[in-house]
Nucleic acid binder design. Structure first.
Lengths: 154, 154
DNA sequence: TTCTTAACTAAGAATAATTCTTAACTAGTA
DNA sequence: TACTAGTTAAGAATTATTCTTAGTTAAGAA
């Protein structure tokens, strides 16, 4: 996917009922650039600070929470106790590596379907389900390399 | 399930290769007592402090992390950015209420089987899978009441 | 275009959460 | 019973996050 233009970002922010300030546009761009990295507020700030030295860390904190509330981005669940954010709004799961502390996006259509089917057959009373994700805990074997999924032939 | 005796706790801690100090036994008991609440270190400290005023908060922090490493307890993922712990070691999932900030245990044998089957048929390259669980995010509709799951007849 | 105003931001203080340091203590073992 | 590696209390230090306030700005109205 190609990056959004500033106009498109402006529009998205406005469409959520928020003022499209220059700070918000920059934070949104940074989140898009850090897609897949699930950054903390501090990391977003580091990323945008060189090009935008006047944007304060406090603003980044506040803006990210504002975006979550407006459902422009999501909070990512975390094992390590910091607040992390995810620009990806399409359904996907996360792998949590206990050793490397990485949080890795994990998209598998079959798994999504399996869960969607399960939760369409089971209703949670008194709960409005917005999304689900699978937490896989374990250790990455070779920290430098990627993790991939393959089907095992029966 | 009935509570473990101090001897049994002592044994479990020793079996993990840790010194079974009185502080660790008390922390373990507190975790068992707070089962289902996914407490923070501070909350564990609050719970045990009245009966054990000499145990320091720092020790509670350290002990909980030691227990996680020894796999006596688990970290629970959090949306809110604090470290939370779970004494329940049997497979179960969690429901995250964004509005009430609750984390609710959710056990469903059918779901566990479904996932176990999926991950036995799909191999993750470069990852040693230790466990999995599902996170459901959304909002509780009536904060006072409970959430329950019901099967929808086709 | 200019005006108006509610919403937003920078800066840094304040608070909360977590880790670190060090000297004293203790469980497990010889 | 003594030894020693591992553990702990206390509080300092660090890190993460929120709050406060005065000034600024986007967006709609005149």
């Amino acid at each position: 996917m190609q990056p959004l233009t500033r106009q498109q970002i402006h529009q998205q922010i406005s469409a959520s009922g928020l003022k499209a300030t220059s700070q918000r546009i920059v934070v949104f761009e940074a989140m898009a650039a850090l897609h897949g990295q699930h950054p903390t507020a501090e990391e977003v700030y580091q990323h945008l600070h060189a090009a935008n030295p006047s944007i304060s860390l406090g603003t980044v904190y506040k803006t990210l929470d504002t975006f979550v509330e407006a459902e422009l981005i999501r909070r990512v669940l975390s094992e390590e106790g910091g607040k992390r954010y995810d620009a990806g709004m399409s359904p996907h799961s996360h792998i949590y590596c206990s050793n490397t502390k990485e949080i890795i996006d994990f998209e598998d259509e079959e798994l999504e379907k399996l869960l969607a089917a399960f939760f369409s057959q089971h209703r949670l009373e008194n709960f409005e389900l917005k999304g689900f994700s699978v937490q896989l805990t374990g250790n990455k074997l070779e920290p430098g390399k990627q993790i991939s999924i393959t089907r095992v032939s029966k």
